[in-house]
Simulated assay, not measured.
Amino acid sequence: MNGQIIQIRPETLRPAAQWETPTPDEIRELIRLTGLNGADVAAMLGLTPQGNKSGRGSRTVRRWTAGDTPIPYAAWALLAHRAGFGLIWVD
């Protein structure tokens, strides 16, 4: 990103039926806006069982931010709420 501000498109902040998948840049920006790091995002979303130190949840977050795997809507919506965009899943 090199310090540039990434705009999050309004199409990514809609209820699931009208939602457009965010780009990896948008995912990284949303995570930045939450103030969390990848491990914290994984923990917040329940991607790792408690006590599991394998890092698998963080790996999932890295796959989203690298564009290897699309982020699920539910995870995006919870992150958007945490970042201050409100309840995007409500019409």
Rank of each mutant, 00 (worst) to 15 (best):
M1K: 11
N2T: 03
Q4L: 06
Q4K: 13
Q4H: 09
I5Y: 10
I5N: 15
I5M: 14
I5G: 07
I5R: 15
I5T: 15
Q7W: 11
Q7S: 14
I8V: 12
R9F: 03
R9W: 07
P10K: 08
P10I: 03
P10T: 06
E11V: 09
E11W: 11
T12P: 08
T12R: 08
L13V: 05
L13K: 04
L13S: 08
P15R: 09
P15H: 07
A16L: 12
A17L: 06
A17P: 00
A17W: 06
A17N: 10
W19Q: 03
W19S: 06
E20H: 14
E20C: 10
P22M: 13
P24A: 03
D25T: 01
D25G: 09
D25N: 14
E26D: 10
I27W: 00
I27D: 01
R28W: 03
E29S: 12
E29P: 03
E29N: 11
L30Y: 10
L30N: 06
L30T: 03
L30V: 02
L30K: 03
I31V: 15
I31P: 00
R32M: 05
R32Y: 11
L33T: 03
L33V: 01
L33G: 04
T34L: 13
T34C: 13
G35R: 10
N37S: 05
N37F: 00
G38D: 12
G38E: 13
A39T: 02
A39Q: 09
D40S: 12
D40T: 05
D40E: 15
V41N: 06
V41Y: 05
A42V: 02
A42K: 00
A43S: 14
M44G: 00
L45S: 12
L45N: 08
G46V: 07
G46Q: 13
G46T: 04
G46A: 11
G46D: 08
L47K: 10
L47T: 03
T48V: 07
T48W: 02
P49N: 14
P49W: 12
P49C: 11
Q50P: 10
Q50V: 08
Q50E: 13
Q50T: 08
Q50I: 04
G51H: 06
G51A: 06
N52L: 08
N52W: 03
N52V: 04
K53D: 14
K53T: 12
S54A: 13
S54F: 04
S54G: 07
G55F: 00
G57W: 00
G57A: 09
R59G: 07
R59C: 02
V61D: 10
V61C: 05
R62I: 01
R62W: 04
W64D: 06
W64A: 07
W64M: 00
T65P: 01
T65H: 01
T69S: 13
I71V: 15
I71G: 09
P72K: 12
Y73K: 12
Y73V: 00
Y73C: 04
Y73M: 09
A74L: 07
A74F: 00
A75L: 07
W76D: 04
W76P: 02
A77T: 01
A77W: 03
A77M: 08
A77R: 05
A77S: 11
L79T: 05
H81W: 14
R82V: 02
A83N: 12
A83W: 09
G84S: 12
G86K: 13
L87Q: 08
I88M: 12
W89A: 14
W89Q: 12
V90L: 15
V90T: 11
V90D: 13
D91S: 14
D91V: 05
